[in-house]
């Protein structure tokens, strides 16, 4: 090899290009780093001391993470669904349905369901959480049964449940505003080191659990096998129907946790608009994270990074004073750009 001055730089570029195409998480990670740098520049350095800058930077970051924890948790389940070759459009609507059920249970007003049977305080909260999670799992299981036993395309099945959940919830919750008890809010707002970071902790714990499931368990690997080649998986003794049902059940469960988190953060829910569009946000996070819409190839870690990229971008647009109506356009650009830049199999 010659020792020309350009060699080192060429090697770096070769390494970079090689890693970009060979390692799927590399491109996502690089994109996130670029976004963080831009965001740091946008925040500026106009602070009296380094400490003041750092604390502002950290507060900014905990806001980003907290604001995206809800979508982040849903997108973990969505990753499994998409790896298995499916899609779940209903997550935004099941979110409000589950939220409504939880709030009806813990309502401190005269209509509160648990109050009427004399259950209050921590036992009531625990019961509401268990009921909410069970309800979410049930909704997911119904979708799973429609897809497997009913042989409906996931797009159609979840388009249907999306409409049903939203509409029924809105109808029954008309003119009823449940009162969420103050202690319930602690679930999301319990301070850790004086910071409101509980949602972030939940998100990362779930992300870790999902990562382990996807990499180490028979079920997690079977999800990839089903998405990669359903026929081959079935002939290899994989119970394809069970795997498919479980990914929707798991997503329903994650939506339930996200709904409980939202109720405890805000203390109320706007049934017409809450969660609306969150199915697309969750899908965006999964896709930006490098998971293939065709199924078979996907990464939990990528989804976490994908959710962060979208979150950081929102924050960046905010810092730069981009008008709110234009922000969705940037999300669109990010999704298209991310997929364009990812390594894709040649379609020929």
């Amino acid at each position: 090899m010659d020792d020309a001055p350009g060699t080192k730089r060429r090697n770096f570029f070769r390494w970079f290009a090689g890693s970009w195409t060979a390692r799927p998480l590399f491109s996502t990670g690089t994109a996130l780093i670029v976004m963080v740098i831009l965001q740091t520049l946008a925040l500026g350095f106009d602070f009296p001391t380094f400490g003041a800058w750092l604390s502002r930077w950290l507060v900014n970051w905990s806001n980003i993470l907290r604001n995206n924890a809800g979508i982040g948790i849903i997108s973990l389940g969505m990753t499994f669904v998409i790896i298995s070759g499916g899609i779940d459009l209903a997550v935004g609507s099941t979110l409000v349905a589950i939220g409504a059920v939880v709030m009806m249970l813990i309502d401190t007003g005269p209509k509160g369901l648990l109050l009427r049977i004399g259950l209050t305080g921590v036992p009531a909260y625990a019961a509401a959480i268990i009921a909410g999670v069970a309800f979410g799992a049930l909704l997911g299981e119904i979708t799973g049964i429609l897809v497997t036993k009913g042989k409906l395309p996931p797009f159609i099945a979840t388009l249907g449940t999306m409409k049903i959940c939203r509409s029924v919830t809105q109808h029954f919750m008309q003119g009823y505003t449940p009162q969420v008890p103050k202690p319930f809010l602690q679930i999301a707002s319990f301070p850790v080191f004086g910071q409101l970071i509980m949602p972030i902790i939940y998100w990362f714990i779930f992300a870790f659990i999902f990562y382990v499931i996807s990499k180490r368990t028979a079920f997690g690997r079977q999800v990839t096998a089903v998405g990669s080649n359903e026929r081959a998986a079935r002939l290899s003794g994989v119970s394809v129907q069970r795997v498919k049902r479980l990914v929707y059940t798991l997503t329903g469960t994650m939506v339930a946790f996200s709904a409980i988190l939202q109720v405890s953060r805000i203390g109320s829910m706007d049934y017409a608009n809450a969660g609306s569009g969150s199915e697309m946000d969750a899908i965006s996070a999964v896709i930006v994270g490098g998971t293939s819409m065709a199924g078979g190839r996907g990464f939990i870690l990528g989804t976490v990074l994908g959710a962060l990229i979208i979150g950081v971008m929102n924050n960046l647009l905010n810092l730069m004073g981009v008008p709110p109506f234009l922000r969705e356009a940037f999300k669109g650009v990010i999704v298209i750009g991310a997929v364009l830049l990812q390594k894709r199999e040649s379609s020929s």
Partner: peptide
């Protein structure tokens, strides 16, 4: 199965 590409290979694994 016959036809390993369609019925056997898990190409992403």
């Amino acid at each position: 199965p016959r036809n390993r590409k369609e019925n056997g290979i898990l190409k992403d694994m």
